[in-house]
Design a protein around this nucleic acid. Structure first.
Lengths: 184, 184
DNA sequence: GTCAGGACTAGCCGATCGGACAGTTATCGT
DNA sequence: ACGATAACTGTCCGATCGGCTAGTCCTGAC
């Protein structure tokens, strides 16, 4: 009876994102997702040619935004790069909490998201760390940058009982302290 | 021909740890582990009653050490708690890099490591954050504590080209900056 | 010598998963 | 009215996985 002409696709995406985040990519079967929205597994595979495509479609928007952020950082260095990278990544992490958590949780399983658009995750990470370190190659700066990045990422993914604006302010301030960029 | 009377067990543990970290708990089959050490799957299940027991045995030592650290922190607060927690967790994370990475990567899959000794992971995390925050309930302090914890954890798990001592110093210094505990 | 038991293995089983396919119903342009 | 196409489903298949069982082989005690 065609419940609705095309709402099913969106509901499948929403369910898949929720279940993937909750139980992992491998831990969620196509049947689980189909049952969650109340349709058949075959119907799911009608909308998404296979499981990997479904995942890729979930991650694409976040991937695009990350690429845009990196492009914005490209011509910055020193303190400006660190500040911009910190704020930009905090925004991204909060907007795409579940997607980024999904990405990191299943880095191994994904391995081959070939050319569906999902930019190389490691490249994105490297670029962000480089910007946060203010383009410095000093071990202390690289370690601090990785720590700031990790902190923002996992703190966003955790479901703390604070609203996003409070989180954003607290995270960026803490990250800039981590990076030793406290003075104006 | 019994390659060696009892070295197999240790080699199975070593292979399992490596493969679990590399491909995840779910992503590694018993056959994979057995093939890696060159024995049969049945032989693996002779030494470890099931897959979950194998995982538990890998995580037990780290779990013990974490419990000891928390006990040491219990009667500290304020700056002393933050400093002790930071240093202690940095040590732990470096000593048990792969184990802790394994634990976090597969938090969902494990869910039920009932009473094999592996202490509640969430409890350990809560206790460490509480200590790092200097027992403060302020949002800024909690967020900073979670960021410091996350930073140390992921930075240890990443395979940076620095020796452990350099890493330890850089991580503890950065974490104390994150927590706003810079003055002596 | 023999025999008990530890160490180890080949082979199988039930469950589950991703995916393929043929078929059915609904919608729409002509 | 009628075919074409989209939307959807029931069912089956091959592969894989965790785990069990029925053995084999070796060694050391007596």
């Amino acid at each position: 009876m065609a419940r609705s002409s095309s709402g099913l696709r969106e509901r499948l995406l929403a369910s898949a994102l929720r279940l993937f985040v909750q139980h992992g990519y491998r831990g969620t079967s196509l049947a689980d997702i189909a049952a969650d929205v109340g349709c058949s597994k075959a119907s799911l595979l009608y909308h998404f040619s296979n499981k990997k495509m479904l995942l890729a479609e979930l991650l694409l928007p976040a991937s695009w935004e990350a690429s845009k952020l990196i492009a914005r950082l490209e011509h910055l260095d020193g303190r400006a790069a660190a500040v911009a990278a910190t704020g930009g990544f905090a925004d991204l992490s909060l907007r795409f909490r579940r997607e980024i958590k999904l990405l990191f949780d299943n880095l191994g399983d994904l391995a081959s998201l070939p050319e569906l658009g999902v930019e190389g995750v490691e490249d994105i990470g490297e670029q962000l760390i480089d910007a946060m370190a203010g383009r410095s190659a000093e071990p202390d700066a690289r370690v601090a940058a990785l720590m700031a990045l990790s902190g923002i990422f996992l703190t966003s993914a955790a479901e703390l009982p604070y609203d996003d604006e409070t989180l954003r302010e607290a995270m960026t301030a803490a990250a800039l302290r981590t990076l030793g960029r406290t003075g104006a």
